[in-house]
């Protein structure tokens, strides 16, 4: 497993390199540049000011030189400074990534806590009222737009019932109780939606497993139905569920701009979106790079989890 892990980490390097090159080049293709956003309207046409600022920010050099300078610094652990706030990019990211990780991890946990038992029970009690209920609920979850569900949550739990704050964020290290209050609605909005997909997946994957020979063998050996279902079948049925949850987690870690906007959640999605609007190249580059690393790591963890769930899975 160690060799596999090291191997996968080494594979990350070319993937991330290509990612940064592609992002760097594509950003340059966007109309307008950071000088346009920094300079404003009042002296927009003054070439001398533009030239000065281009030089000040190192944008007067050819693109490959700019990239070389940037990647050279990154390899030394320096992400540079935001062209807009002029604060270290690492600080800008450090402020927004924890909020995103917090929301994504709790949201996916909620999703799995709902989806795995619900999907498993629906499969075991196939064609029963429980199964139909689970299927209808998950169909509703897939059908309703995430933003609408989020707004409805705010309407009922904040405005009508007054139980939870409607928007905002607080770090769990600042005040855990208050932080959880802010977290519940966005995490529920994330979790419910993801659970809808995962429930259906868990159900169908359970049904597949239940039809396999090893299940009949286990039953013929006299294992209890509970043991057959929950120890053997569910464990194997979890592999596709874990795969999809891993992808969902990676996706959520990339930021959910709509939910972050609705809940005024200062996450990485908003940070990168605003950086793109402002053409804040170092922040966009570093943000994408960090997200790339996160996605690769999450995928690696998912692969490793396969092995934990089913030791027969060959990692390489």
């Amino acid at each position: 497993m160690l060799i596999y892990t090291i191997n996968r980490i080494l594979h990350m390097i070319p993937v991330l390199f290509v990612l940064t090159v592609v992002v760097f080049m594509f950003i340059q293709l966007l109309p307008g540049d950071v000088i346009d956003t920094l300079i404003g309207d009042e002296e927009a046409e003054d070439p001398a000011t533009r030239e000065l600022l281009m030089k000040e920010y190192g944008l007067d050099k050819p693109i490959y030189v700019q990239y070389g300078v940037w990647i050279g610094k990154v390899l030394q652990g320096d992400f540079g400074k935001s062209l807009v706030t002029r604060r270290p990019v690492a600080l800008e990211l450090f402020e927004s990534i924890p909020a995103t990780v917090y929301l994504a991890v709790v949201g996916i946990s909620i999703s799995m806590l709902i989806a795995i038992p619900l999907g498993a029970i629906a499969a075991v009690k196939r064609n029963s009222p429980t199964d139909y209920t689970a299927q209808i609920v998950s169909l509703i979850g897939i059908s309703i737009p995430e933003f609408w569900f989020a707004i409805m949550c705010v309407l009922f739990f904040s405005l009508y019932l007054g139980w939870l704050p409607s928007s905002g964020y607080m770090s769990p290290f600042e005040d855990l109780g208050q932080s959880l209050k802010y977290l519940i609605l966005p995490a529920a909005a994330v979790g419910f939606r993801q659970a809808a997909y995962t429930t259906r997946l868990t159900r169908s994957s359970m049904l597949d497993e239940m039809n396999k020979e090893y299940v009949d063998t286990a039953r013929s050996l006299g294992f209890s139905e509970k043991k057959v279902i929950y120890k053997y079948t569910l464990r194997n049925a979890m592999i596709p569920t874990i795969t999809i949850s891993g992808l969902q987690l990676a996706n959520l870690l990339g930021g959910t701009v709509v939910l972050e906007t609705i809940f005024a959640w200062p996450g990485i999605g908003q940070a990168i979106y605003l950086a793109i609007i402002d053409r804040d190249y170092p922040l966009i580059q570093a943000g994408i790079l960090v997200l790339g690393v996160i996605v690769v790591i999450v995928n690696l963890l998912v692969d490793l989890l396969y092995r934990v769930l089913n030791p027969r899975v060959a990692l390489n």
Binding site: S158, P165, T261
Partner: peptide, 18 residues
């Protein structure tokens, strides 16, 4: 100061006493 970009989110925060 709490920046809340969407107009209705700010209004909701006012109405809920946040």
């Amino acid at each position: 100061g709490f920046p809340k970009k969407e107009d209705r989110i700010r209004l909701t925060a006012l109405r809920t006493g946040e």
